[in-house]
């Protein structure tokens, strides 16, 4: 039995401590240890983007980040993006455009879209599609998602 590691990191702005095995991914720790179930497990190998979070402000697949690697760093999940009373502009645009069906991919798409607009506030449709290539929606509602991101860019 490998000894558990004690890790300290900032999660959604809060200083957080947890214990994990070296092999546990950030996604497993978020969902199973910290009860932050917004990030979803889809493919679990870096293809689908359902587990996307921001690590030190950059979009990553949390299924491919080993939990010990976040020691001393800051993680932002969908739970920390906004409050239910004041949604983020990307969240509002997704609602207004009905840019979701089953919703499993939505947290990943919203964080990926936020990361895009932070870096490029006025993307073209091609840039939106190219950027979101790492996020899969198996209900295949891509058009509405792309429209929502372009709408959010206007606000």
């Amino acid at each position: 039995m490998t000894k558990k590691l004690h890790i300290e990191a900032k999660i959604n702005g809060k200083d957080t401590e947890f214990l994990c095995e070296p092999r546990q991914s950030l996604l497993e720790v978020l969902r199973d240890v910290l009860q932050l179930t917004g990030a979803k497990e889809g493919c679990n190998n870096g293809n689908c983007g359902a587990c996307n979070v921001l690590l030190d402000g950059r979009l990553v697949n949390s299924c491919l980040v080993m939990a010990p690697e976040i020691a001393g760093r800051s993680v932002a999940t969908i739970e920390g993006l906004a409050s239910p009373q004041a949604l983020h502009p990307v969240q509002k645009a997704f609602l207004e455009n009905a840019a979701l069906q089953c919703g499993i991919c939505t947290p990943g798409f919203i964080l990926a879209s936020k990361a895009l607009l932070d870096q490029n506030p006025h993307p073209t449709e091609h840039q939106v599609r190219h950027w979101l290539a790492g996020n899969l929606c198996r209900c295949t509602g891509y058009d509405k998602i792309v429209r929502a991101v372009l709408d959010a860019a206007k606000t």
Partner: peptide
């Protein structure tokens, strides 16, 4: 290479 997630990692 990959998408933005992979390039950030």
């Amino acid at each position: 290479i990959g998408g933005p997630q992979i390039r950030n990692m």
